[in-house]
Design a protein around this nucleic acid. Structure first.
Lengths: 228, 228
DNA sequence: CGGTTGTATATACATGTGTATAATAAGCCG
DNA sequence: CGGCTTATTATACACATGTATATACAACCG
């Protein structure tokens, strides 16, 4: 059995850290975040999380294989933490893009632009979320699903706000948000494996698809109103 | 180096097989298809192709590990063949469902129904196509992509036919087909990991999403016409 | 200083993998 | 039959992996 002791509170938490009693025992030379970084370095267009080995990550991080256990129970736990981080990072980016949206540059369009920008830059966080959705442990898949739900929720709120502003109706906004999100991610996943020249085409296709959905929900909202 | 000799034409081709000279040398005890079957047995909701090992498949098929090379260069080649088979099988099923469609039971709806039926039955072919799309070698991903394109193409033809029959317009039918296909597969992938009770809900969501797309394309077709 | 505590490493082991090499087995032809 | 051809297996090797156990190391506390 491995130890996987808890103490390691030193700096492992990437975010806030209250007072904290001065530490006990040897100083940790590495943090959870460092390990996640190492894993991130190993991931690319041709390498997915599920194929990473514990030893490989440890090697990349410059620690002994067994030290890994001080930070994560196994690779699966690291993978989930990684998904978490990727999701947060990406939501922040898309969120910013959303705020840059204006009446002329719709929320949907500027989000898609930001999304494709990330894709075309070699942004690993996005790569991960795009392609790791369907393989791995149940816990892992749930983590990915959770991130997608976050995206959907934020989009849903925006869509409603937008519909009120522009005084267009919106039918089943939650479903609209879900459809858009899933479609963008699905199309993005295929775009990832395409040369840069072809990605512009995909982006255009994506935009048209989303417009169909938007037109659809608005039309359905109208005929709903009429019927009442 | 392995041999991976070609001769093995005995019965390896799952489909048509012309005259064929009486074979030479020892009779093959196993075929490519048998190996694919073995791999299929090992795959399930919690086991994906990419995690299968050559030895494992050979074991399941009851042959020595090295015999594998007589039939496939490596696991990747087998995986591609498997995708091929899964695609063919599934297209046949959906195709039949499509033909059962009538004016009241739209093509889209009955296809979705057939799709979910497959999902709820423990149909491995579908599981494979749903979840293996984004990981694996480039050749493998291309194989999956190819199957999706087949689905899209068949759907596209049907959509056009349908639009003419019902005299509704249709805007960018190819994109409509693509959007529908990708969305159904994406939603199906998440449904796969859900308990049966919740899948009905997903199916309903899926139907509404598709209706939005259809309404959208029709509306856009109309305003196109008007503008002319 | 020595004790205690938490961390990191070294070594080791069993297990699984892909595949090279060589031997064996089975079927046909002359 | 002997010879040829193809298929299958046996054995073996080098390598990577996860992890158990034990030991060394660093920091604090009294």
């Amino acid at each position: 059995m491995q130890d996987h002791a808890k103490p390691l509170d030193s700096e492992s938490n990437g975010e806030q850290n209250p007072p904290q009693r001065a530490h006990q025992g040897r100083k940790a030379v590495i943090t959870r975040d460092d390990l996640i970084d190492a894993a991130l370095k190993l991931i690319g267009p041709h390498r997915s999380i599920s194929t990473l080995s514990l030893r490989e990550v440890a090697r990349e991080a410059g620690i002994a294989p067994n030290s890994f256990y001080r930070h994560f129970r196994d690779m699966d736990e690291l993978a989930i933490a990684l998904i978490d981080r990727a999701g947060r990072s990406l939501r922040k980016i898309i969120g910013e893009a959303r705020n840059r949206a204006s009446p002329e540059r719709s929320v949907v369009r500027s989000s898609v632009e930001a999304f494709m920008e990330q894709l075309n830059g070699d942004e690993r966080y996005l790569h991960i979320l795009l392609r790791e959705g369907t393989v791995g442990s149940d816990a892992f898949k749930q983590a990915v699903e959770r991130e997608l739900n976050f995206f959907e929720e934020e989009l849903r709120v925006d869509l409603i706000r937008l519909a009120e502003t522009n005084n267009t109706g919106i039918y089943e906004p939650a479903l609209v948000a879900k459809a858009i999100t899933r479609l963008v991610f699905a199309m993005g996943a295929t775009a990832m494996d395409l040369p840069l020249e072809k990605r512009a085409e995909i982006q255009e296709q994506m935009t048209t698809m989303l417009r169909m959905i938007v037109v659809g929900t608005q039309t359905m909202a109208q005929s709903d109103t009429i019927r009442l």
